[in-house]
Amino acid sequence: MRKNSTILFTLLALCVVVLFAADMCVGSVDITLRDIWAVITGGECDPITTKIIIDIRLTKALMAILAGAALSVSGLQMQTLFRNPLAGPYVLGVSSGASLGVALFILGAPLLGLGGSSLLSSFGVAGAAWIGAAAVLAMVAAVSRRIKDIMVILILGMMVGSAVSAIVQVLQYMSHEEALKSFVVWTMGSLGDVSTTQLLLIVPAVVAGLTIAVAVIKPLNLLLLGEPYARTMGLNIGRTRMLILLSTTLLAGTVTAFCGPIGFIGLAIPHLARTMFHNADHRILMPATALLGAVALLICDIVSKLLTLPVNTITALLGIPIVIWVVVRNKNIV
């Protein structure tokens, strides 16, 4: 079994490298491999080609790896915490909170006559989304300190999400065409709107989130046995919950803030990892999920570039048949 896992991990790592290279080569502008290599190794190339390779392709490919790993790992944590195979990174309202932040920024500010405010524009869409996501998660986390039953928190997260969606719909209903279009496009998700400067903010946040995720591998394994049993094994449930929520805020919150909500990956990839590795141990599942998430989002990014479609539509169109196939083939995936 251990030998099989090693082979699978090697294959997945190889896939990440190959797909990363493929993602760098695909784009609407024809750029030769020699030029790509010259830019990456610091050689000479014309400025516009350098700009396309560094500012667009490299940033996008790195973002695909980071977002894929981050969303998948936070999905895995949510599925184990809530003991629910339908849980994903957005189950606690991260996506709805981010949408509210962006809706207030894009739709609400012009309605209040604050559209041109320099203070507001300095926050940017990403800042507004991050604040929205963090605010909703902080609220859920504060309530969860008083509630023992984890299912109540799940319901609470979904209710907060619905309430926030209603507010967003009111803002959409009252907004004018240009702002509405910007908001709808944001909800479609995109890996290509991230600048190299923003990437320098995203990397530490995602690395911190993944570090916390690795730190809770043992508690996650104990939670598989149920909270009462985990408690008898000496697990501090409250502290574990807080760490998992913090990790989700850093992972899903950051990715959603900069890329918009990206569906399917966080829900489906942990199931694919379980099927592929035939294992429920988080010491195996955590890295497997991260690598599979990176592979999946790199594939989706390549397809979205070839078809000039939003990445969110590709993740759903490519992902849903896979999930249905996995569910039909393996009835006991959790």
Binding site: G27, S28, V29, I48, K51, I52, I56, R57, P110, G115, G116, S121, G124, E178, A179, G192, K305, T308
Partner: peptide
């Protein structure tokens, strides 16, 4: 069109029109 192609066009354009809700170059570039 893909953003790469758009960047290529923008690099060689002599004029840029209809820039959405932007009222200043600073808003546009931010």
């Amino acid at each position: 069109i893909d953003i790469e192609q758009a960047l290529l066009y923008a690099e060689s354009a002599d004029f840029w029109l209809n820039v959405g809700s932007c009222h200043t170059l600073q808003e546009l570039t931010s």
